[in-house]
């Protein structure tokens, strides 16, 4: 019998700092066949184990359209993450998954898409962003709006700057404040960027948001103003998780488990299930 709790050995292939406390990690199953056959969906997460420190859930930041590698974008906040930050390239870590529902790609294909990211929300939504770009012809119009507090705190700066140059999507980047005057684009809240969103077919649009809790309310209000139906407004939620597979109970919200039935929920879910946000 397979043990769903057993962490799989993966090699930490590459790591570098995205900001002062957020680091990018590239990992690969030690077994190459496994590395190439690993399937996942944008929006899913993995449980990462560091012996002695414990285990914690992290969104997959890479896209399944580029197989062989898993990428994470992780903020150092406590036991597990501090231990992970100590690990050097080429060391082994424990990883299991993928878990969670992920984004409903089957429904999003063929539709217009609008992605709004704030801060660490880039971790799960980079997966969706890259997936759409890699399968660009399968999707309709595409907007990517990104907000960071300051230029220094922006994640994936180089990558997103390059994406902004592409002509097959509308990518807009902003920072809340730019004290040193070094930021080349808009300065202000991410909601300001909605003024650049035009000619979306709202009935035919999926709008996805992930970011700091305070951001949701305002961004969702903008989505609704555009006329996007509530069940096509998507977000990923966070809860404490000790198993990822519906056993430990920690991520329960009313009748559902965030780890099995989420972490991707629609705004309609949020409205009709008490306690979700």
């Amino acid at each position: 019998m397979t043990n769903p709790f057993l962490p799989e050995e993966m090699r930490l292939v590459r790591r570098y700092d995205l900001t002062s406390d957020v680091r990018f990690f590239q990992v690969r199953p030690v077994d190459m066949d496994r590395a190439l056959s690993l399937r996942y969906k944008p929006g899913q997460f993995m449980m990462i184990s560091l012996a002695g420190a414990g285990e914690a859930p992290f969104s997959i930041s890479s896209t399944p359209s580029r197989p062989g590698m898993l990428e994470f974008c992780i903020r150092k906040v406590g036991r597990v993450t501090t231990e992970l930050f100590k690990r050097k390239e080429n060391s082994l870590i424990g990883v299991r998954g993928p878990y969670g529902n992920g984004f409903p790609l089957e429904k999003m294909i063929g539709k217009d898409n609008l992605i709004v990211v704030g801060g660490l929300g880039a971790a799960p939504l980079r997966s969706l962003l890259l997936y759409i770009l890699d399968n660009r012809d399968k999707f309709g119009k595409f907007y990517f709006l990104h907000g960071a507090k300051t230029p220094e705190e922006m994640l994936f700066r180089k990558e997103f700057f390059e994406i902004k140059e592409r002509d097959d999507l509308n990518c807009h980047l902003t920072v809340d404040v730019d004290e040193k005057g070094q930021w080349p684009f808009h300065v202000g809240l991410v909601t300001d960027l909605f003024s650049k969103v035009e000619e979306l077919d709202p009935e035919n649009t999926y709008a996805t948001v992930c970011g700091p809790p305070a951001m949701y309310k305002f961004v969702i209000a903008e989505f609704l103003k555009l006329g996007i139906p509530k069940h096509q407004v998507l977000m990923t939620l966070e809860r404490r998780m000790h198993c990822g597979i519906g056993k430990c109970g920690h991520c329960a919200i009313g009748p559902i488990y965030t780890c099995l039935d989420g972490p991707v929920f629609s705004y309609w879910d949020v409205l009709h299930m008490k306690d979700l946000i």
Partner: peptide, 19 residues
């Protein structure tokens, strides 16, 4: 009621232990 917690408890040597 089935809820549980998980924790790693290291031996004194620190490089081994139990979950």
């Amino acid at each position: 009621c089935n809820c549980y917690n998980v924790r790693d408890v290291s031996d004194l040597t620190l490089n081994s232990g139990v979950r």
